[in-house]
Design a protein around this nucleic acid. Structure first.
Length: 880
RNA sequence: GGACGAUUAGCUCAGCUGGUAGAGCAUCCGCUUGACGUGCGGAAGGUCGCAGGUUCGAGUCCUACAUCGUCCACCA
């Protein structure tokens, strides 16, 4: 920063240079260091296919702020970055590329296709990393990981095999969620339920003995092709006699039994339910109890299969239309009513998922959930805000087995080999070449891959070397804080916790800091389809990274959504500029051999003590807020201190000395200016890393970079309570005068004399220069007695001073009197309420002493103010 | 059906362990005050969703309700 620097801060000229400096200095890198406490954060790995969005910006800003804070506090701070292979998302992306060449993945075959994906990964996988750097992220890039690198693959293999050996992974035919568009199974968490308008079709199923019929209702008539029964409630009098009989399934020409099961609710519809065990989880359960046939009628693409007779090959919705038409033609359709119900959709492609029976791999969750519940209940892992632990526990306590196999090619292939001879499945840490049971070499590896979240669940420890017993793992694990949005608590946080507990014996982090969604200015979710997304990089380009980061943190509290206002970026850009110019002011006056050292105590003047004392309070409070993850509150206080306390007051208070000819006083002021600026840059650095580093580099400083400088600490010897109060008295007087002058429309250029009547004459004599400069006085006289003649005087009062300004014709005594009366009324009301409180015996006896004393002090000040006003009133009265 | 969140100045939101309300933006008035007009000084604007309760004292704690929103479960 040069003295002749521009009046406007230009982030573009600073950010990339500073970031390079940090990288070259190795300041992001952390190594084990005995005796130094580690502080570790693992970054939620963005998808390789990802484009930086506001969610990432929020995530990264919070984490970077925390890690920079801890680094400055002296922790060995490690922030591990990485990228997720994102199974479905990435595969879809590459398949789309292929489609442009008119090819599918099947044209290439598995091996060639995977080569292509790796290619793609190598080409674009770094884009998101480069974008994160633009956010100022101080991650240890040397430790960057990919969920499909060798280490992670090894970890995944180990986890799969060990869970299998413990009986916690099994393969079986269950009803799972199937996405016919992505052509894969999904876990429960990957299904989003959406209320959609539909119909309830009432269909007549005739009894085969000709004695009548039952009417069933369904929202998915096409599934009737797979019906293998009708269910009624055993207590239902209406159907007592037909239980055990059979009905003729229309269109299919087949007899199916009527069974009695509690599952059928008598009140709903006709009380008869058609049973499709292959396409409905409840029906599947009922079917198991009553030995109903399981007939799967949809293929992997959601088309009717060979068991669907004449409907074979029709898409599920096409088949629905056709079947309804045929039922109607055959006289089977009783009626159709509008019916809105929730439909499961795929969280990736948003097409309807089908519940389908399928042979898949599952993780048995109940035993794993136990410990994951305990660590949260015991407080070993805490959610911030606390309420999310309830969300978590509720999910964990009701969790169902996790379907982990995906019918994709891109991902960790399941390490299981099926023997063609004996059917045994060999699950192995090493690639198997023969059946472990019969020794046959005719084995084939399971073609499926694992759910992407299966590998991200291991992220906190696989990135530190697990399953090896590395020193890094020993030192940096368990990690400290995990930062993420509430939308992935189930997908990721929950799974990391039970995985950590199971495989490392430790919960992976002690705190989960949850943030909300960044919405658009109308409160809508930002999305590609709405086109309402705001590009973080665009904001950085226009307002600077620091401004964007501040936008993410100010006025926002953990766990709550926030609306993104470009105006807020602008405001924060202005703040950056303010700080820039304040620094320019300090710099312009800096002697060449300047150093950052506080002057001797006896040289400090009242304003210096005031600002140092205020700074001390700020340090204590902001640190405490940060420790409690109250980032928004902390930054607000720092912001206010810089703008209000430092710029608007302290800098103004130093001007007289800075422009004076007294080198001693000038030096003292400058030293304090530099000291406070340095401290405040440190406090602000975690939030606005670029501008603070840039300025700090130009100030006299110790050490190579602010990023590695120490966090300010409270210094008892710099707490000046008395001087602080005295300075505030003078400031209150200045404010009161400014206020009066503004009311009277007196321009600053019109200076006036000022007379002060006060019980603290020495304070106002010391502060006379300030009053002159900041309250536009050409002279300040501290009076012994009230002025005799108030003709043409403006007056105003604070709790410890009465102020008189001769303003000649501008002043109308009658109006002055009127104004004093108004103020008196206000002051008396205030006093009355205070006295009411103080005369309440219960208040005095029960409220804490400090509170009572504070009220007494307020009352005393109110009395002083009233006395002053009354006196003025009497004096003005004389003029009339 | 269950859980949770929100309801505070015109707008968007802060407000930690209870002590008579704050910011940013917007509005109004004034200002070429030697760092900054991306600025300075000043003003106006709120019975903190509604009704009870606890307490000396409630935006803050408890109960019920209303409106909006989110998540989970169920849905023939």
């Amino acid at each position: 920063m040069q003295r002749e620097l521009s009046k406007v801060y230009d982030p573009k000229a600073v950010e990339s240079r500073i970031y390079e400096m940090w990288e070259e200095g190795g300041y992001f890198h952390a190594e084990r260091e005995d005796g130094k406490k580690p502080f570790t954060i693992v970054m939620p790995p963005p998808n390789v296919t990802g484009q930086l969005h506001m969610g990432h910006a929020m995530d990264a800003t919070l984490q970077d702020t925390l890690i920079r804070f801890k680094r400055m506090q002296g922790y060995n701070a490690l922030w591990i970055p990485g990228v997720d292979h994102a199974g479905i998302a990435t595969q879809i992306k590459v398949e789309e590329e292929l489609r442009k060449e008119g090819k599918t993945r099947y044209d290439l075959g598995r091996e060639k296709f995977l080569e292509k994906v790796w290619d793609w990964k190598h080409r674009y996988g770094n884009r998101i990393v480069e974008q994160q750097k633009k956010l100022g992220a101080s991650c240890d890039w040397d430790r960057a990981r990919f969920t499909m690198d060798d280490g992670c693959s090894k970890a995944v293999r180990e986890v799969f095999v060990s869970l299998y050996e413990k009986g916690l992974i099994y393969k079986g035919n269950r009803i799972i969620n199937w996405c016919p568009h992505c052509v894969t199974a999904l876990s429960d968490a990957e299904v989003e339920y959406v209320d959609k308008p539909g119909h309830l079709w009432h269909i007549r199923y005739p009894l085969t003995d000709g004695s009548g019929e039952v009417v069933v209702a369904t929202t998915r008539p096409e599934t009737m092709l797979g019906d293998s029964g009708v269910c009624v409630n055993p207590a239902d009098e209406r159907y007592k006699d037909i239980v055990g009989k059979t009905v003729a399934l229309p269109l299919v020409n087949k007899q199916i039994p009527i069974v009695a099961d509690d599952y059928a609710e008598m009140e709903f519809g006709t009380g008869c339910v058609k049973m499709t065990p292959a396409h409905d989880p409840n029906d599947f359960e009922v079917g198991k109890r009553h030995n109903l046939e399981v007939i799967r009628v949809l293929d992997d693409n959601g088309r009717v299969n060979a068991l669907g007779g004449k409907y074979q090959g029709l898409d599920r919705y096409e088949a629905r239309k056709q079947i309804v038409a045929d039922l109607e033609a055959g006289g089977y359709l009783v009626r159709v009513e509008d019916y809105s119900h929730s439909v499961g959709t795929c969280y990736r492609c948003h097409n309807d998922v089908e519940p389908i029976i399928s042979d898949q791999w599952f993780v048995k969750m109940k035993p794993l959930a136990e410990e994951a519940i305990r660590v949260v209940k015991d407080g070993q892992t805490k959610f911030v805000p606390e309420r999310f632990s309830k969300t978590y526990l509720n999910w964990m306590e009701n969790v169902r087995d996790w379907c982990i196999s995906r019918q994709l090619w891109w991902g960790h292939q399941i390490p299981a080999w099926t023997c063609a001879d004996c059917g045994h499945i060999t699950v192995s840490r090493e690639d198997a070449c023969k059946c472990e049971k019969c020794g046959s070499t005719r084995i084939q590896r399971d073609p499926d891959v694992l759910d992407t979240w299966f590998s991200s669940a291991l992220w906190p420890f696989e990135t530190l070397g697990w399953p090896e017993k590395t020193e890094d793992l020993d030192y940096f694990y368990p990690t400290d804080v995990l930062v993420t949005g509430y939308d992935i608590i189930f997908f990721w946080v929950a799974r990391m916790i039970f995985s950590g507990c199971e495989h490392t014996g430790k919960t992976p982090f002690h705190t989960v800091l949850i943030h909300g969604l960044v919405r658009d200015d109308k409160g809508r979710k930002m999305s590609k389809s709405l086109g309402n997304g705001i590009d973080p990089l665009d904001m950085i380009d226009r307002y600077g990274c620091d401004a964007l980061r501040m936008n993410m943190i100010t006025g926002n509290s953990p766990g709550n959504d926030m609306r993104f206002y470009v105006e807020r970026c602008e405001a924060m850009r202005n703040f950056a500029n303010k700080l820039w110019n304040a620094s320019r002011y300090v710099m312009m006056n800096l002697p060449e051999d300047g150093e950052n050292r506080l002057p001797d105590r006896d040289k400090l003047e009242i304003a210096d003590k005031w600002v140092l004392s205020k700074l001390n309070t700020l340090i204590a409070e902001a640190t405490e807020n940060l420790e409690k993850y109250e980032l928004g509150i902390a930054v607000q206080k720092i912001y206010d201190f810089i703008w209000d306390t430092y710029c608007d007051w302290y800098i103004e208070l130093t001007k007289a000395r800075l422009y004076s000819e007294d080198p001693e006083r000038k030096k003292t002021a400058l030293q304090v200016l530099v000291y406070v600026l340095d401290q405040v840059l440190r406090l602000l650095h975690p939030f606005m890393p670029f501008i603070t580093e840039e300025i700090w580099q130009s100030l006299p400083h110790d050490g190579p970079a602010l990023i590695r400088a120490s966090w300010p600490v409270y210094r008892q010897e710099l707490a000046f309570r008395e001087e602080e109060a005295h300075m505030e008295s003078v400031m209150n007087a200045i404010r009161a005068i400014r206020n009066r002058r503004a009311e009277m429309n007196v321009p600053p250029s019109k200076k006036a004399s000022l007379y002060v009547l006060t019980a603290k004459p020495e304070v106002f004599r010391e502060g006379a220069d300030f009053v002159e400069r900041l309250a536009y006085a050409d002279s300040v006289t501290v009076l012994e007695n009230a002025p005799e003649n108030l003709d043409g005087m403006l007056s105003c009062a604070t709790s410890d001073a009465k102020l008189y300004i001769p303003m000649g014709q501008l002043v109308d005594a009658a109006k002055e009197l009127e104004r004093i009366d108004k103020e008196l009324e206000k002051a008396r009301k205030n006093l009355a309420s205070l006295e009411g409180k103080l005369s309440n015996e219960k208040f005095v006896s029960r409220a804490p002493e400090a509170v009572v004393n504070a009220e007494r002090e307020k009352a005393r000040k109110a009395q002083d103010l009233i006395a002053g006003l009354e006196q003025s009133r009497a004096e003005f009265q004389k003029l009339l």
